[in-house]
């Protein structure tokens, strides 16, 4: 069973009197533990796709099955539970709460889920260690570098130990070196079995993924898995 199963997904936006098809007739399956890079020109629908996968947005048509369950028809509260426990989201612009410290930002999903403070502190301490942020626990986001902020954001996305991490251009606001570090962190998570889907403009980074999806005008232009299969066909034929 695929972790993610999209069929006939449509996402339209009304801009004035024109309709933008951000996603058009999208079918996609992603298995648990995969490492997928989503690429394509600007405006091709990459972010829209990732938002749908993260239940931050809903499709106009089509079904989205996560772990075999149709999540598009869930109530808002059930969707909140899915977001809380099954999905970690990493944004290009970090989206940390400016008034909270690094530790509090990392703990936020647990606080929202009602996990007791003792358990939270234990897990945050571990996460700070894992992400090399021990000395930054009490710093506010504006006292952190870009790379540190994104590490806090990744720690926050993983603190509930979700099986799926979605990252929308996680290195877009970082220089090459810190970007590299962040990608390494994400890949380490994937190595532990977490399904990782990364939107990126960077060809090099995309190439590191085991599977590349290229989008254009809201459609899948190419899927490396499918390409492999057709390549296989060519070889065998």
């Amino acid at each position: 069973m695929a972790l993610i199963e999209l069929s006939g997904i449509e996402r339209r936006f009304l801009l004035g009197d024109t309709t933008v098809h951000a996603l058009a007739g999208l079918n996609l399956q992603i298995a648990a533990g995969e490492y997928v890079a989503v690429m394509g020109p600007s405006g091709s629908g990459k972010s829209t796709l990732l938002n749908l996968l993260g239940l931050l947005d809903r499709p106009n048509e089509g079904t989205y099955k996560l772990e075999g369950r149709d999540v598009t028809t869930l109530s808002p509260d059930e969707q909140a539970t899915v977001r809380s426990t099954r999905i970690g989201f990493v944004f290009q612009s970090f989206h940390l709460v400016p008034r909270l410290t690094a530790a509090e930002n990392i703990a936020l999903p647990m606080t929202l889920a009602g996990i007791p403070a003792a358990e939270r502190n234990k897990r945050v301490a571990l996460a700070l260690q894992d992400f090399g942020l021990e000395n930054r626990a009490d710093h506010k986001p504006d006292q952190l570098s870009g790379g540190q902020r994104q590490r806090v954001a990744i720690a926050r996305a993983t603190i509930m130990q979700p099986p799926l991490i979605l990252a929308d251009e996680p290195t877009g606001n970082l220089d090459r070196h810190t970007g590299e570090e962040v990608v390494n962190l994400l890949e380490a998570l994937n190595a532990k079995g977490v399904t990782l889907i990364v939107v990126t403009h960077d060809q090099g980074m995309g190439a590191r993924a085991r599977r590349q999806l290229v989008m254009e005008d809201g459609r899948l232009k190419s899927d490396s898995t499918a390409a492999d299969i057709s390549n296989l066909g060519k070889i065998s034929g």
Partner: peptide, 8 residues
């Protein structure tokens, strides 16, 4: 907060 799983 919603993205992080908060209920309404």
């Amino acid at each position: 907060l919603k993205a992080l799983g908060a209920t309404s």
